[in-house]
Design a binder for these strands. Structure first.
Length: 652
RNA sequence: GGGCCCGUAGCUCAGUUGGAUAGAGCGUCUGGCUUCGAACCAGCAGGUCGGGGGUUCGAGUCCCUCCGGGCCCGCCA
C-alpha cells in the first residue's frame, strides 16, 4: 500500500510543478531520516532553487502553502533547509489497509527465464552452489510476487570434463563396470562418493601426467555417445542430478526444465548457431599464430578498449582446431534458444513430480508421448552465475550482439554474485590443512578438485540437528516427528536467510559457527516474530474467543489509536512489503527483501514486548491491537513464505 | 599488462542510486521472565566511512589519483 501512496504523491507533485513552474524534472520521494519528520520527504525545493533563484527553504514553504490538498495527506511541512515533509492521515491510511481487497495483480506480458543452480553433475553440491540456488530461487519468487511469468531452468553440463574425470576414476582407477556403478548409485549419498573420487582423480593427474590421455579418450567417447564409457557417463550424470534435485528440494527449490548439453550437441543446436555466427561474420577462422585452425570471436566484441589492432591472440576461441566446440560456443546456442532465436527446440520428458504437484521436465533428443509445456522463447533472461565467469558471460552477450540480436543482448542479464569462501577458523574445524599464509587471509577459496568445501547436505543436517536440540528442550511434550518437522523448517529458514542477507557482490567468508547461530539477524529471529503473532491468535482461540469484528474500526477509531507512535510505526512498516519488493527488484537485490523482513520482525518483537494484547482491558484498543497483530502476521507470513521461501513453523 | 569487485564501529555487514545528526547484528558491559514462552526486549560503550585531491547548495555514495586485499583474463567449464 505504501508504494501506491508514494506513486500518487509523485504524480501529484509532478503535475503541480509542471503547471506552476513548467518544471518537468522527475520527482524524488524519500523516506525521512527520522520517523518524527513524517512518512515522506521531498527534496524538490533544492532542485527548484537554481531555476527560481531563491532559497530552498523559502521555496519549500511556498510549495507547502500553494499545492492543492491531497487525499489522505494530513500535513505538508517545510523543514530543515528546504525539505518538504509529508504526514499521512493515519486513520485514512489504516482504513485503506483494513478494507483493501487482495488486489489480483495484472500479469505483465512476456516470460522471464531464470537459469540457476547449473551444478556440474559429478559430485555433491556444496555451500557455494547453495548461494547460487537460493539467490536464484528467491529472485524467481520475487518476480512472481510482482506478477511476472517466470520459467526456471537448470542447465546440466553432462558431457564436460568434470563428468569425464569422475568416469576416469570409475573406469581406470577403480576398474568398475557399469553394473558396479549401478550398485553404488542405489546406495545413499552417491554424490558423496563421487566427491571423493573426483578429488582422487584430480590428484592422480598431478602425479601421473600421462593419465590425462584417459581424460581425452573419455571425453571423445562421451561426445560420440557409444560404448561402456559413454554409458558410465550418462549413469553418473543422471544419478548426480537426482542427488542435486533432492538437496535443493530440502530448501524448497524446484525447477521447470533441465536443458542438457548432450542435447545441445545431438539436436544440432550448436551446428545451427555455428552457421549463423559464420554467416554474420561474428566469428572468423584463424590461419596463423597461436590460435591457428580455430574459429574465434574478436576481442573487440566483448571488450571496451582494445589496445592492439588485430589482436588474434586476445580473441576467444569458439571452435578448437580439432573441430570441437568450447563451452562458450554451446552457451551461445543455448542463450539463443532461450530467446527463441534458434528455430530449434528440445524434446522433453517428465523428470520428476514434486510433492506439491509441480512437474519438472528434462531435455531429451527423442520425442516422448506426453505433451510438454512450451519452454524457452523468453523475453528476458537472467543467468545466475558467479562473478568469476563474467568474462564468459560477456562473450555470450557479445555473440548475440554480433548476430544483430541487440534487444536480446540487452535483455540478457548476468545475475552475478561473489563466491562463498571458508573462514580460516572453519577450515581448521573441518580438518582442512592451511598454510601459514592462508591462516592470515580473511578467507580461503573452496576447491572441488581438491575436495575442499562444505557439502550442502552436511550443512543442512547440522542445522537440523542444532534446531532439533532447541525444539526438544522447549517443547518436550510435542510428538517426535512434529518436532523434527519444526526443526527442519527452522534449519531451512536459517540457511536461506544466511545466504540472502549479504548483498550479491559481497564475498561470503563462510563461518560455521556464525551460520549455526539462531540469534540476532537470522532466519529463526524472523520466524520467531511470525510465530509469536501466531501464538497470540492461538491463545485467543484456546480461551474460547473469536476475533472481534474489525469493522468497528472506523477511520476515527483508527486515528485515535494510531496517535500512539509505536502502533503507527509498526503498521507503517508492515504496509511496506510492496515497496520493499519494488526496490529489491529494481536493485536486483534479494538481500533487500531479507532485510525488510528482519526489520519488520524487529518492530514486531518490540511491540510484542511492550503491549500485552490479550490482557488489554479497553475493548476498542484490544480490537485495534488484535487487528494490528493480524495485519502484521499476514504481511510477514507472505513475505517469508511466498517471497523468501522461508517456512513459518507452528511453534518455536 | 588488461578487466571486475571490495575497503564503513573490536568482528561480520547495511546504507533507499547525491540529501537532514552514518545504521544493524555479533562481541563487551548493565538491566528485564507472573506464560500473548527470553531463539526476546531495553540501555551503555564503540566512527578522521583506507589516504589525498576534485565536482556542488550538499559526497560514505559521482570523477581523478595513490595504498591495501580478492577474483578473472585457457584450444577447462
Amino acid at each position: 500500500m505504501f508504494h501506491l501512496i508514494e506513486q500518487k504523491l509523485r504524480q501529484h507533485f509532478a503535475a503541480f510543478l509542471s503547471s506552476a513552474y513548467s518544471n518537468d524534472a522527475a520527482i524524488v520521494v524519500e523516506q525521512p531520516k527520522q520517523s518524527s519528520f513524517g512518512e515522506f520527504a521531498l527534496p524538490v525545493a533544492f532542485s527548484l532553487a537554481r531555476q527560481l533563484r531563491k532559497a530552498p527553504r523559502a521555496i519549500a514553504e511556498e510549495l507547502a502553502s500553494k499545492i492543492p490538498a491531497i487525499e489522505g495527506v494530513a500535513a505538508l511541512e517545510a523543514a530543515g533547509n528546504g525539505y518538504l515533509n509529508v504526514r499521512l492521515d493515519r486513520g485514512h491510511y489504516a482504513s485503506l489497509l483494513l478494507h483493501a481487497a487482495a488486489s489480483s495483480q495484472a500479469q505483465a506480458p512476456g516470460k522471464v527465464i531464470v537459469e540457476h543452480t547449473n551444478i556440474n553433475p559429478n559430485k555433491a553440491a556444496h555451500i557455494g552452489h547453495l548461494r547460487n540456488s537460493v539467490l536464484g530461487d528467491t529472485f524467481v519468487r520475487m518476480l512472481r510476487a510482482s506478477g511476472r511469468q517466470v520459467e526456471v531452468q537448470n542447465y546440466i553440463d553432462n558431457t564436460g570434463v568434470q563428468v569425464a574425470d569422475v568416469v576416469v576414476g570409475f573406469h581406470y582407477l577403480e576398474k568398475k563396470s557399469p553394473a558396479d556403478v549401478a550398485a553404488l548409485i542405489s546406495q545413499p549419498r552417491f554424490d558423496y562418493y563421487c566427491w571423493d573420487l573426483y578429488a582422487r582423480t584430480s590428484q592422480y593427474y598431478g602425479s601421473h601426467p600421462e593419465a590425462v590421455q584417459w581424460r581425452r579418450d573419455t571425453l571423445h567417447s562421451i561426445e560420440h555417445g557409444e560404448g561402456e564409457i559413454a554409458e558410465l557417463a550418462h549413469m553418473v550424470a543422471d544419478a548426480i542430478v537426482e542427488c542435486h534435485l533432492n538437496t535443493m528440494l530440502r530448501l524448497g527449490i524446484v525447477y521447470d526444465v533441465l536443458p542438457r548439453e548432450s542435447e545441445i550437441l545431438h539436436l544440432k543446436f550448436w551446428a545451427k548457431a555455428f552457421d549463423q555466427l559464420k554467416e554474420r561474420q561474428a566469428i572468423y577462422f584463424v590461419e596463423d599464430g597461436k590460435n591457428k585452425g580455430c574459429w574465434v570471436m574478436a576481442a573487440a566484441h566483448f571488450r571496451d578498449a582494445v589496445t592492439g589492432d588485430e589482436g588474434d591472440d586476445d580473441a576467444k576461441v569458439i571452435v578448437r582446431s580439432n573441430g570441437t566446440v568450447t563451452y562458450v560456443g554451446k552457451d551461445i546456442a543455448y542463450q539463443m534458444w532461450k530467446f527463441g532465436l534458434l528455430g530449434l527446440d528440445f524434446h522433453y520428458k517428465p523428470l520428476r513430480a514434486y510433492p506439491n504437484g509441480h512437474q519438472a521436465w528434462v531435455a531429451t533428443d527423442e520425442a516422448c508421448d506426453l505433451p510438454a509445456p512450451a519452454f524457452g522463447r523468453g523475453s528476458e533472461v537472467y543467468n545466475v552465475i558467479d562473478s568469476r565467469q563474467s568474462y564468459l558471460q560477456d562473450v555470450v552477450v557479445a555473440g548475440l550482439r554480433a548476430l544483430n540480436y541487440e534487444q536480446q543482448a540487452d535483455r540478457s542479464i548476468h545475475f552475478s554474485y561473489e563466491m562463498v569462501a571458508l573462514s580460516p577458523r572453519t577450515c581448521v574445524e573441518l580438518g582442512i590443512p592451511l598454510s601459514e599464509e592462508d591462516k592470515k587471509r580473511p578467507y580461503v577459496e573452496v576447491s572441488g578438485r581438491k575436495g575442499l568445501g562444505v557439502k550442502a547436505d552436511d550443512l543442512i543436517d547440522k542445522l537440523i540437528e542444532k534446531a532439533k536440540a532447541e525444539v526438544d528442550s522447549r517443547h518436550p511434550g510435542k510428538a517426535e516427528d512434529e518436532r523434527t518437522r519444526v526443526a527442519t523448517q527452522i534449519a531451512i529458514g536459517s540457511l536461506r536467510y544466511f545466504l540472502l542477507k549479504f548483498t550479491r557482490n559481497t564475498v561470503i567468508a563462510f563461518d560455521l559457527q556464525e551460520a549455526l547461530s539462531f540469534e540476532g539477524e537470522t532466519g529463526p529471529y524472523v520466524q520467531y516474530a511470525a510465530v509469536r503473532a501466531r501464538n497470540i491468535l492461538r491463545k485467543l482461540a484456546e480461551r474460547g474467543e473469536t476475533l472481534p469484528d474489525f469493522s468497528t474500526l472506523t477511520p476515527e477509531v483508527l486515528r485515535r489509536q494510531l496517535a500512539a507512535e509505536d502502533f503507527w510505526q509498526l503498521l507503517l512498516a508492515a504496509s511496506k512489503s510492496g515497496a520493499a519488493l519494488d526496490s529489491a527488484l529494481s536493485a536486483g537485490e534479494p538481500s533487500h527483501m531479507a532485510r525488510y523482513a528482519f526489520q519488520l520482525a524487529q518492530a514486531f518483537n518490540a511491540f510484542y514486548h511492550d503491549y500485552p494484547i490479550l490482557a488489554e482491558e479497553n475493548p476498542e484498543k484490544r480490537t485495534f491491537l488484535l487487528w494490528l497483530a493480524v495485519y502484521f502476521k499476514e504481511q510477514l507470513d507472505h513475505t517469508l513464505e511466498h517471497t523468501l521461501g522461508i517456512p513459518v513453523p507452528d511453534y518455536m
